[in-house]
């Protein structure tokens, strides 16, 4: 925002409905009941943002149960025995890089460049698949060592929390491929661009959840 509220002498710069400007009617939607509904892109993005926040609240319940149960190993292996920080570091690198390439896909969509869009989405997909492969590999190695989800309350909570994030990433990859197909078949139409906006938000939100996850599960778990 370049305008400085007081130096320009503007009455109501933040559209709070105060000052002499109020009641004369704004020509544009401001999302506070003045001037009619906001553009569809804004409404769709806001609605999806609310969904993402509710998803984060659901994850916080899994985080709470994990934090409560982290010490209840029932004589079985603890996080310190099981977790491999190098594996977690590579998984983190994959997801962070995929978040960046997803941003590149958003930019390509903005300038309607199909080639860059496909390339960025393909790299994002590859990094997401690499992440899922590493995670599946880790789960299998735990189960083979007798540390499956039925072993202790700690491992039940671990598999629920990390597995739920993995399921979200799998769903994200399916959505990613769908968006590539839709751009291929229908081009950068307004409705397709709104879907790409929602997909990008979803993918970035997954990365935010992973930041909390690697800190709470892998780093704090191995340190304790």
């Amino acid at each position: 925002m370049t305008a400085v509220p007081f130096s320009t002498g503007e009455a109501d710069p933040y559209r709070r409905g105060q000052g002499p400007g109020h009641g004369q009617g704004h020509g544009h939607a401001v999302g506070r009941g003045d001037g009619g509904p906001a553009p569809k892109r804004v409404v769709v993005g806001y609605g999806f943002w609310i969904f993402l926040l509710s998803d984060i609240v659901m994850f916080s319940a899994f985080f709470a149960s994990y934090a409560v149960l982290a010490g209840q190993t029932a004589g079985g292996p603890s996080g310190h025995d099981l977790f491999d920080q190098r594996n977690a570091a590579v998984e983190t690198a994959c997801l962070l890089a995929s978040s960046f390439t997803c941003g590149m896909a958003s930019l390509a969509c903005e300038v309607k460049n199909r080639l860059w869009f496909y390339a960025a989405m393909a790299v994002t997909c590859g990094l997401g698949l690499a992440f899922l492969g590493l995670e599946a590999n880790e789960f299998v190695s735990f189960i083979v060592r007798g540390a499956g989800p039925t072993r202790s309350a700690f491992l039940s909570a671990f598999f629920t929390l990390v597995g739920c994030h993995g399921l979200h990433v799998s769903a994200g990859i399916l959505w990613l491929l769908t968006m590539m197909a839709q751009v291929f078949a229908k081009g950068f139409r307004a409705d397709i661009e709104r879907r790409i906006l929602c997909f990008a938000l979803f993918w970035h939100a997954l990365d935010i959840i992973w930041v909390a996850l690697f800190t709470v599960v892998y780093l704090l778990g191995a340190a304790a």
Partner: peptide, 9 residues
Amino acid sequence: LGQDAAPGD
């Protein structure tokens, strides 16, 4: 000014 932005914009 006065227009809302979608998250991600």
